[in-house]
Amino acid sequence: MKDINIALAKGRVAKAAMELLINCGCTFKDYSKDSRKLIFHDEKNNIKVTLVKSPDVPVYVEKGAADAGIVGKDILMEDKFDVYELVNLNIGKCDMCIAGFASKMPDYSKKITVATKYPHITKEYFNKRGVLTDIIKLNGSVELAPIIGLSDVIVDIVESGKTLEENGLVVFEKIMPISARLITNKVSLKTKFDAIQWIIDTLESLVEKED
């Protein structure tokens, strides 16, 4: 039988997802939380796990380089991908938030400057509210933007709020909840159905237990 390739979003999501897979009965010989390896193989269940940067997960899956992937909803919202989004895994939970200095509530009647890693989500949200924005796309440490005067507010994912707090920022508003999803390639789901079905069912049953 051919291996099922699963791409996981490196970092937070991968750690939670590996735990989920191990709870499903997968065994990855050389996996430990701090391991730097990027490929793990479960020979018993014919599963190959690859760790890639989170925005790349749906790219791998859409193109069929991976049969399935586990990635945050934020990534799937930011760009449109032609994949099946099968299971809400309820791991890696956080919120997409608008944040800034408590003392400087943004004035939405004027054009505001927003720094974010998610320009599309941000634009769509503010367009819907009829707020004019200049969007600055950053690739990390978005919290810095208001501090150094680059933007009025930021839009970013907030898990515990600790990073914001330590940088003196507060959440103004939650835009939407985010959690990790199991996605699959549209062809793989059909052509490798039995193998993928097993993964879906096991993951789903684990998720439902938590509900």
Binding site: V83, Y84, E85, L86, V87, N88, R181, L189
Partner: peptide
Amino acid sequence: ENKNMGDLK
């Protein structure tokens, strides 16, 4: 179309 069970529910 996207078999998005979580959000469909």
